[in-house]
Computed example of a mutant assay.
Amino acid sequence: MLEVKHLRFGYVPGKDIMKDVSFTIGKGEFIAVGGRNGCGKTTVTRLLMGLETPVEGTLYYKGDDITKLSPSERGRFIGYVFQQPDRQMFRPTVAEEVAFGPEQLGYTKSEVKEITEDALARTGISHLAKSYPPSLRRGEKQRVAIASALAMKSQILILDEPTSGQDGKETREMLILLEELRSAGLTIVLVTHDMEIIASHCTRAIIMGYGTKAFDGTPEELFTKRDDLYELGLTKPPCVELAQSVPGIGYCKSMKEFEERMMARREAL
């Protein structure tokens, strides 16, 4: 769906913070973008969305060059949820906020109403339709931002640290929602520091390091075959470390999977 070729970018002229970054994003993938603080992972997603312009390089969507498209034009196929989602909200109610995109696309009032109600239902916030967005909890604000992307018929959803600052229940609920959206055909790109989320939910990880792409592959490859995790600002999740300490258990992507394999081994003895 999306192809990035040889991106180079710097906030200060003549001083690159990344160079020669290339990768592709396929339909239905759940991709983590990770790395240590300041490595450029959020900058990569801002370049995808058009919030920053590369010094060099090209971006393609379904074969079409989108490098010069504005963020509003890319919003027709890429949705972006900021780390502080309230910064992208400006309307008095949740329903009106979600309706803004379809209104700009020229849908009729009845069509906008139908699209908005569907997006609210899919994100589980129909009961918040008349609420004032700034008054919501952070997790609810993120769902409003996701609903706004769904209302625009976005095919790719980019989220910047969507689980930071949330408790365990909110994190689980957010991940369940993202898995449901992915099952329905949406592509998910997640900027995250959470190694457990990368291991348990993501199909692929793109790791930024030292001004360029340092890794692009499966979480299993990342956590079992790289010996430079510390240098990249990463750690092995507990489920992987525990599984590696028990001969014959194999790679486990979650604590639940590790516990199930240990129970099966115990019952087999």
Rank of each mutant, 00 (worst) to 15 (best):
S110H: 13
L229R: 07
T43F: 08
D86N: 15
K213I: 10
P85A: 13
T224I: 00
S183N: 15
G168D: 14
F223I: 00
T235W: 14
G38C: 01
M152S: 02
P247L: 04
K5N: 14
M208C: 06
V98L: 08
K253C: 06
M49G: 10
I158D: 10
L178T: 02
A243V: 01
R137H: 14
G124D: 11
A121I: 15
T171E: 05
Y60R: 03
K27T: 13
I158W: 06
E140L: 00
C39E: 12
K109T: 14
F30W: 10
V191P: 05
F100H: 06
F77C: 09
E73W: 10
G40P: 05
P71A: 11
G26N: 15
E161D: 05
E220C: 12
I125S: 04
K15A: 15
R226G: 03
G35T: 09
I31K: 10
Y132C: 12
P162F: 09
T235K: 15
G63F: 03
L186D: 13
P133V: 09
R122W: 06
A264T: 09
Q88M: 12
D227S: 13
P237R: 06
G50K: 09
Y80D: 03
L190N: 09
E56H: 10
S70C: 11
V246W: 08
T108F: 12
A95F: 15
E221D: 14
P71W: 04
S164F: 12
E257R: 08
G124C: 09
K41L: 09
R182H: 02
L229Q: 04
L190P: 04
S72L: 14
G26Q: 15
S135W: 08
P238K: 10
I158Y: 07
S131H: 13
E170N: 03
R143I: 09
H127I: 01
V112T: 06
G250V: 05
K19C: 13
Y61D: 09
T116F: 03
P134T: 02
E259I: 13
L269A: 10
V21E: 11
T45A: 07
H127P: 00
D167P: 06
Q104V: 15
E29V: 11
R122A: 06
M262V: 04
E140D: 11
R172W: 11
P13E: 02
E257G: 11
P134F: 05
L7C: 02
E241H: 14
L157E: 01
L47V: 05
